[in-house]
């Protein structure tokens, strides 16, 4: 375990907590893409199948997996529940959340069958999950770019999520130098995901800097 990976996992944890806090505290789902959240549930369900094999890697690894699965499902439940509690916002979300996830699902499924560590169900599912995670944020970024504005909490959510996978890259470099091992599929998908976030990072950086620039006397 190295500091990059710990910080990365904590950033991932923080992003989900920010999202849940965002929905519960502001009691609005405005600007949140339910498609991205459903994709994340799929990412965790297909990646953590080894929970059923009871070959637990470590206590930390297991509780984090259980947390990610349960919290991502909880977010989707919260968003679905807003169908009754805030019907207008829910309808608006469906109208603005228009990214064609079929293309993501088909593309990542093909990638999983073509590029995997072993042609077994668990490994293809794992590979599908890694490829899917690298593009799962697209509906959310698409919605954000269309609406042009968003609550700051949503922006912080995306930033923390992007930071998590970006931190995994130095983690992989660290592990390569200390343990001599590297997972090429995870590395490739992680680089793609970081690139997907890069334009968002640029916007976020400008927005934050611009705001602080404005604050200067």
């Amino acid at each position: 375990m190295n500091p990059f990976r710990i910080l990365g996992d904590l950033s991932h944890l923080a992003s989900i907590l920010v999202l849940i806090f965002n929905i519960k505290s502001t009691n609005t789902i405005e600007g949140i893409s339910i498609k991205t959240q459903v994709l994340y549930v799929l990412v965790f369900l297909t990646r953590y199948l080894d929970l059923f094999s009871f070959r637990l890697v470590s206590f930390y690894n297991t509780i984090m997996k259980l947390f990610f699965i349960s919290s991502s499902i909880y977010v989707v439940v919260l968003l679905q529940r807003s169908k009754t509690t805030q019907a207008v916002a829910y309808k608006t979300m469906l109208l603005t959340d228009t990214f064609k996830v079929q293309y993501i699902l088909l593309g990542t499924l093909i990638a999983a069958f073509v590029i995997n560590h072993k042609f077994t169900f668990v490994e293809i599912a794992w590979s599908f999950s890694v490829w899917l995670e690298s593009v799962a944020i697209l509906p959310q970024l698409f919605m954000l770019s269309k609406s042009g504005k968003s609550k700051s909490l949503t922006v912080h959510y995306i930033f923390a999520l992007g930071l998590y996978r970006t931190l995994y890259i130095p983690n992989w470099i660290w592990r390569y130098h200390t343990e001599g091992v590297i997972d090429k599929i995870a590395l490739a998908a992680g680089i793609i995901q970081t690139l997907v976030y890069s334009d968002f990072f640029y916007l976020y950086y400008k927005k934050v800097i611009k705001r602080s620039a404005l604050n200067l006397p």
Binding site: D9, H12, V57, F68, W126
Partner: peptide, 10 residues
Amino acid sequence: VDSTIVHDEL
């Protein structure tokens, strides 16, 4: 020997 790959990262 059990040849399943162990992914130790989240």
